[in-house]
Design a protein around this nucleic acid. Structure first.
Length: 441
RNA sequence: GCGGGUGUAGCUUAGUCCGGUUCAAAGCGCCUUCCUGUCACGAAGGAGAACGCCAGUUCAAAUCUGGUCACCCGCGCCA
């Protein structure tokens, strides 16, 4: 039995007999000569076959083919595929698995509506466009990990089951837990802070669960949170500096590793200036007022419209499609956020906006035990409920802070996707867990 | 939770404002036949939707009205 050759290796096997296995991507029949494209994990290869095609061969059938690799005549080369200079002359075609008729053409899933794209996820995941999105997501996560490891951060695994809500009021999934109940973690926040006490610098690639009754293009009930936390910061801007390194590395990585995917999805990596602009939220609102006459200067946060506007400003003024917005109001941030000593109504916190959407949140945390206990009370909670978390501070904690990226959001913004759900292989939202929940009743 | 919008063949859409023998149409996909150089192959023919569902207005409803279900978008909240 011949060993399987990967399609991408075919060009090195001219004149040789090989065996390839994969899916039928497309078929072009000319009667007594049939061309079809075979797809495996490494690429696409044209197979040419005279009179020996199995009865009813169709797209997505899985086949095993033995044949001779031939150089294509020069005029017949295909520049669009990597194996375009060769083709496989099939001698034996064995059908391993037969597919039923496809509900739509897999060649161009860009034209499909979102519900169809998700209803047929096991199938649409096979399309070039969807695979390209997931490839970019893989690079984003991998670069986050690599960059932080290179900065001497330790990776940890956050628990998914937690005893209390992290951020206070936000909606949270309740689950049965033996004789009692527990929750799905909204964020690895507490655990990464606790681990600063052990490793100083930590990060995790975690799942975060939010039961927000939100149906928008930028929310998921389960998303990938790229969380980092660092101790012994000299000042809170160290956090933004680290964040900036990660963002730049991620963009560089995508550009270097995903040129094919970017081209296919007609996307370009966001433009970024040498230093990502940093402005206070109040200044942002003032700028928006001057530019649009829209007065949101009393609002405690930027509206989605504001976020788009200030990004537009950053692009025009600084040539950057990424911007830091800093100093959010104390009452809008969680209890553990460090207030600015010079203006305690505002915090040493920041968001990163990219092409009009928030992709990161971060800030300095309160590391003083007494102050933290006071704040928990001020936020209307009982310190006893946070006893476990508070141990980390009770037993000594340096000045620290951190941030978290939404992985799918980075992918969405870099690729210009219309809906965050497209950036997830298996998105969960209010109406869907794989299938539609409305079909279950 | 609030506001706006959409629902026509397997998929993507036209037709809806100005009800009526181009009102059920097109492209892709599917079936049949033809084709030895295609790569979104091509050519000829064919099947496939009582226009989300229910009710109403009308001589007449895909088209107007109400309800209902599903989906999409925006906002709040957030990554």
């Amino acid at each position: 039995m011949k060993e399987r050759t990967l399609i991408k290796e075919a060009p090195q096997k001219i004149g040789k007999q090989i065996k390839v296995e994969g899916w039928i991507n497309t078929i072009r029949s000319h009667g007594s000569i049939v061309f079809f494209d075979l797809r495996d994990r490494s690429g696409i290869l044209q197979v040419i076959c005279e009179k020996k095609v199995p009865e009813g061969l169709k797209e997505e059938d899985v086949v095993c083919i033995e044949g001779l690799v031939k150089k294509r005549p020069q005029k017949m080369e295909n520049k669009d595929i990597e194996t375009g200079k060769v083709e496989l002359e099939a001698q034996k075609i064995e059908r391993i698995s037969q597919a039923v008729d496809l509900p739509f053409a897999l060649k161009d899933t860009a034209g499909l509506s979102l519900p169809v794209l998700l209803d047929f996820r096991p199938l649409t995941l096979r399309s070039e466009q969807v695979k390209a999105i997931l490839k970019v997501e893989e690079e984003v996560i991998d670069e986050f990990r690599q960059t932080l490891k290179s900065l001497d951060f330790t990776e940890f695994q956050a628990p998914a089951i937690v005893p209390t809500a992290t951020e206070g009021g936000a909606e949270i999934f309740k689950i049965n837990y033996y004789e009692t109940s527990a929750f799905l973690g909204q964020s690895p926040q507490f655990y990464k802070q606790i681990l600063v006490g052990a490793f100083e610098r930590v990060f995790t690639v975690a799942k975060a669960y939010r039961a927000e009754p939100s149906v928008t293009t930028r929310h998921l009930s389960e998303y990938i949170s790229l969380d980092a936390e660092m101790g012994f910061i000299e000042q809170w801007t160290d956090l933004m500096d680290t964040c900036e390194i990660i963002i730049k590395n991620i963009f560089k990585r995508i550009e270097a590793e995903c040129s094919k995917e970017l081209k296919l999805l007609k996307a370009t990596v966001p433009q970024i200036s040498k230093n990502i602009p940093r402005i206070k939220m109040r200044e942002a609102q003032q700028t928006i007022l001057e530019r649009t006459k829209r007065d949101n200067t009393k609002e405690p946060d930027l509206t989605p419209e504001d976020e788009k506007e200030i990004c537009q400003w950053a692009k025009e003024k600084h040539g950057s499609e990424v911007i830091f917005i800093t100093h959010y109001p104390t009452k809008k941030r969680p209890f553990y956020t460090m207030p600015d000593k010079e203006d305690p109504d505002f915090t040493l916190s920041f968001d990163v906006l990219c092409r009009g959407l928030e992709i990161t949140t971060g800030g300095q945390r309160i590391n003083d035990y007494k102050m933290l206990v006071e704040n928990i009370k001020k936020w209307g909670n009982k310190p006893e409920q946070f006893e476990f978390y508070l141990q980390a501070f009770k037993y000594g904690m340096p000045q620290e802070g951190g941030f978290a990226f939404g992985a799918e959001r980075i992918v969405k913004q870099v690729l210009g996707l219309e809906n965050l759900r497209e950036a997830s292989a298996f998105p969960r939202d209010m109406a869907r867990i794989d299938g539609r929940l409305s079909n279950n009743e």
